[in-house]
Simulated assay, not measured.
Amino acid sequence: MAPRLSGFTRASSLGPITDFMDRQGGSAARVLRGVDLPFAVLEQPEIVIPLRAQFRFLESAAREIGDPHFGARLGQVVRMANLSAFGAWVCAAETLTQAMERGHAGLNTMLQTSTVLTLLRNGPKVRWFIEFVEPETDGRHHNELLGVAYQIDVVRTYAGRQWRPDVVLTALPRGSPRAELEEIFGTNISHGHPVPGIEFDAALLGRGLFRSADVPVRRSQAEPLVPGNGDTIGTIAAVADLALCEGYPRVDWVAAKLGTTRRSLQRHLREHGTSFNRIVEDALCKRAKDLLTQGTVPVTEIAFQLGYSDPAHFSRAFRRWTGVAPTAYRAA
Rank of each mutant, 00 (worst) to 15 (best):
T187N: 02
A288N: 02
A171T: 10
T327C: 07
F129C: 00
I65M: 08
G206L: 05
R218F: 11
P50H: 10
G206P: 01
G206Y: 05
G25L: 08
L14S: 02
R23K: 12
V31G: 01
N277W: 09
A92D: 15
F200Y: 10
A11T: 04
A72Q: 04
P124S: 15
V77S: 11
H104D: 12
E246C: 09
L258D: 00
A238G: 04
W253R: 10
A105S: 12
T260C: 03
R218C: 09
V215R: 14
G247D: 04
H191S: 03
F129Y: 15
Q112S: 09
I17F: 05
A256G: 00
F86E: 01
E182G: 15
V90H: 02
P298R: 08
D22N: 13
F318N: 08
A53D: 10
E281G: 11
T137N: 08
H141N: 05
Q151V: 11
I236F: 04
L83D: 09
S27L: 07
L181W: 00
F200H: 05
K125W: 15
V154R: 03
R270T: 12
L119Y: 07
V215A: 11
F39G: 07
F20D: 02
I236S: 01
S264E: 13
A328Y: 05
R262Q: 12
K286D: 13
A213I: 13
A85P: 00
H69F: 14
R156M: 10
T274G: 05
Y150V: 02
E136L: 02
I198L: 15
R30L: 10
E136Y: 02
D310M: 08
V167W: 00
D67K: 11
T232R: 09
L292R: 08
R278D: 10
A203Q: 10
Y329W: 15
V324M: 14
A312W: 11
P124I: 14
A159S: 09
E271V: 07
R52P: 00
F200T: 08
P165D: 01
T113E: 02
A93R: 13
D153A: 02
S6Y: 02
L258V: 01
L14N: 03
A62E: 01
I65Y: 07
S27F: 05
V126M: 14
I130Q: 07
A99D: 06
F20A: 04
T97C: 09
P135Q: 06
P298H: 06
R33W: 13
W128A: 05
L292Q: 06
I49P: 06
T18L: 12
V133T: 09
T293C: 14
R140I: 03
L265T: 06
Q44D: 11
A288Y: 01
E46R: 13
G234D: 12
N143Y: 12
Q44Y: 07
G25F: 07
D214H: 08
V155Q: 04
T260Y: 01
A256N: 01
H268A: 12
I198K: 05
R10G: 03
A203V: 09
F57G: 00
T274K: 10
I17E: 03
T18H: 11
L258N: 00
L107R: 08
A243D: 05
P45V: 06
A243T: 03
